[in-house]
């Protein structure tokens, strides 16, 4: 583990977060936001007293939860993408590999049509994601062959199945009230989560990220092949199960927070690998920080570009595709 790149990317995230706090319909000077945060957290700095209620309201009540949300979603998607890529030793792997995003979409759509409470919808989203990964694992097991290929095939089947279920729910939904909600959710949207949801999801997401970071050395060994890892003293089955569990957990929770946000889990690990190399000890924390910064910036775009907010999932795709093409050109460095 190299502390220097981690520190640099942490500073990057802090700067991006500060800029994001000042951006919006009502722009604030960055210096004032910084002074306010310093005053609020450690009691230093000077803020004009008559501006306090305004800052309190805009920075803390409105923008901070949104920024935490973007950081959590971006960090979680990137770390789970990086972990999956290391586990499956495959560059085309993203957090959706085992069907988790399709399953969570189904859970969310089902919840929006049949359940009343917001909490119940969130629970359904989470359970949908877990069910989809469970189905992939089950399909992989049917064939008795313990190979990652079977797991990937299981994920494709499970993902396709749950995508079909989402379509069924959409046809059943009320086209004037429920269908637009479902559609907006599936486009990816950071506006939907309120403060208590963010806090409730934030704790398990951070714990999941931390868990994956602790497994980074084991992931390095696993990416050399099961037998080599085993001969290095790694409990291959346990570690693999744990990585899948944690990566699934945090990527399902991102759907609860922001719907389906594509591309982040694919391009951020790639970019991070290009910048600081493939060693997961450094790659995973850097992916988390870079992913959080990236989604914050994209969210800034989606908030400020037009008078009407663009769903962030659309922006991540539009920004992500050309970005990915650029990255692919240099991706050989990390993969060969």
């Amino acid at each position: 583990m190299k502390p220097l790149p981690i520190l640099l990317f942490f500073i990057l995230l802090a700067v991006v977060a500060l800029v994001s706090l000042s951006l919006g319909k009502f722009p604030l000077p960055i210096g004032e936001v910084a002074a306010f945060l310093a005053w609020k957290s450690v009691g230093l700095g000077h803020v004009q007293p008559d501006r306090l209620p305004l800052l309190e309201n805009i920075v803390l009540q409105i923008r901070l939860p949104r920024i935490l949300n973007a950081c959590l979603v971006g960090g979680a998607l990137s770390v789970s993408g990086a972990s999956y890529q290391a586990l499956f030793v495959n560059p085309l792997v993203s957090p959706g590999l085992l069907g988790v995003l399709a399953g969570a979409s189904f859970g969310a759509a089902l919840g929006m049509v049949f359940l009343k409470s917001w909490f119940a919808i969130q629970a359904a989203t989470f359970l949908g994601g877990v069910a989809a990964v469970g189905l992939s694992l089950f399909i992989a097991r049917i064939y008795q062959v313990r190979s990652t290929l079977m797991l990937v095939l299981g994920g494709i089947i499970s993902g396709a199945f749950f995508t079909a279920l989402v379509s069924i729910v959409k046809t059943l939904a009320d086209p004037y009230t429920q269908l637009p909600n479902i559609t907006f959710w599936l486009m990816g949207n950071l506006t939907l989560a309120d403060r208590s949801t963010i806090l409730r999801m934030g704790v398990p997401i951070l714990l999941g990220i931390l868990g994956l970071l602790l497994l980074s050395r084991q992931l390095n060994a696993l990416s050399m092949g099961d037998e080599e890892a085993r001969s290095l003293g790694v409990h291959v089955e346990w570690i693999r199960a744990l990585v899948i569990l944690l990566a699934t957990l945090i990527s399902t929770l991102t759907v609860v927070l922001g719907g389906i946000i594509g591309w982040v889990g694919l391009i951020i690990p790639h970019t991070a690998r290009m910048l600081i190399g493939p060693n997961n000890e450094t790659l995973l924390p850097v992916s988390a920080l870079l992913g959080a910064s990236y989604l914050l910036l994209v969210d800034d775009l989606s908030r400020t570009l037009f008078t009407v907010e663009v769903p962030i999932g659309i922006v991540t795709s539009l920004v992500g595709i050309p970005f990915f093409m650029l990255v692919m050109k240099n991706a050989r460095k990390g993969w060969q």
């Binding site: 030793v89 050395r217 060994a221 990416s223 050399m224 190399g277 060693n279 993969w335």
Partner: peptide
Amino acid sequence: REAFAYKVEDVVLMGRMP
């Protein structure tokens, strides 16, 4: 052929896992 371009040092360090 490995998929990841770990540094030689990183690969040797894996020996310290046990």
